[in-house]
């Protein structure tokens, strides 16, 4: 696997969620991603970036364009230094929410991407890495 390009985008306030969506849309377009896959990825970004702002107290989105075999894709890591998630199993249950949401953020985002990785512990912040191939 080779790395074509990468960067970091702040996800500190609500407006950054919109900017993160727009940045990822651009990246996915550059990869030649189909509209449907692109829409799924951008929606997942919206859910995860919102989590970073609302639950993580703000953080960053690392992005990279990845290539494997003949396919290229977008890999994103959302990281914050917030309280972390005490019960991962519970957080990955449809409809469960610690805040006022619908509880579709994490589970929904997972269904919208090809690869999903959650790394968190109480007091250690949260890192979610997702990849969508074109």
């Amino acid at each position: 696997m080779t790395l074509a390009s990468n960067g970091t985008h702040p996800v500190l306030i609500e407006q950054d969620v919109v900017l993160a969506r727009q940045l990822v849309r651009k990246l996915a377009q550059d990869c030649g991603m189909r509209l449907i896959d692109l829409t799924k990825l951008v929606t997942a970004v919206s859910e995860l970036a919102r989590n970073t702002v609302v639950y993580g107290g703000g953080g960053y989105m690392d992005w990279e364009i990845v290539e494997r075999d003949l396919r290229s894709g977008v890999r994103l890591t959302f990281r914050d230094e917030g309280p972390g998630i005490p019960d991962i199993k519970l957080a990955m249950t449809d409809g469960w929410t610690s805040g006022g949401g619908l509880g579709l953020g994490l589970t929904g985002a997972k269904r919208l991407v090809d690869e999903f990785e959650l790394d968190t512990a109480p007091g250690q912040g949260t890192r979610v890495t997702i990849t969508r191939w074109s």
């Binding site: 449907i36 829409t39 859910e47 929904g108 919208l112």
Partner: peptide, 14 residues
């Protein structure tokens, strides 16, 4: 609602 949006919403569980 656009097709891609509809498919994504259903996948999201909404």
């Amino acid at each position: 609602m656009q097709p891609a949006v509809a498919i994504t919403l259903v996948e999201l569980g909404m």
